[in-house]
């Protein structure tokens, strides 16, 4: 019983965090535009999850544009670059586009260093 309650509490807390800036990404599809709210920390772990979910949506729905919202993201490593370039290649093949918006300083530095900004439009926060 106690264990159950503990688990439930943990789940509740996680739910509350996701609404703010938790680890899992919120995705919304509207008029062919897939908006992905990137989590606070974008690494191999979170990037793999986002890529899998996004690709599923792109496959099943009419997605013409993928917009990555980085407003809540403070950490990004090279796995994030892989995620962006991977979606860019898929959307390019489908005649669609990818862009990154509301990018903070630290993430911008990573995007600059990687050269990803040469192919994907990036807007600062």
């Amino acid at each position: 019983m106690r264990e159950d309650r503990k688990k439930r509490n943990r789940r509740d807390r996680r739910g509350a965090r996701t609404a703010a800036a938790g680890r899992s990404a919120v995705m919304t599809l509207e008029n062919g535009s897939l908006l992905i709210r990137v989590p606070e920390e974008l690494d191999h772990h979170s990037a793999a999850q986002i890529s899998a979910r996004a690709d599923q949506l792109i496959k099943e729905q009419d997605v013409r544009e993928v917009v990555f919202d980085f407003s809540g993201t403070t950490f990004c490593d090279s796995s994030g670059i892989g995620m962006l370039m991977g979606r860019y290649k898929i959307m390019q093949a489908l005649g669609g586009s990818v862009r990154a918006v509301k990018v903070q300083d630290r993430v911008e530095r990573i995007l600059l260093l990687s050269g990803v900004m040469r192919v994907i439009p990036v807007e600062r926060i």
Partner: peptide
């Protein structure tokens, strides 16, 4: 195939 960008060491060195 795992979408490795080949930038891991580049970032470490940077």
């Amino acid at each position: 195939e795992l979408e490795r960008s080949g930038m891991g060491f580049l970032f470490m060195e940077a």
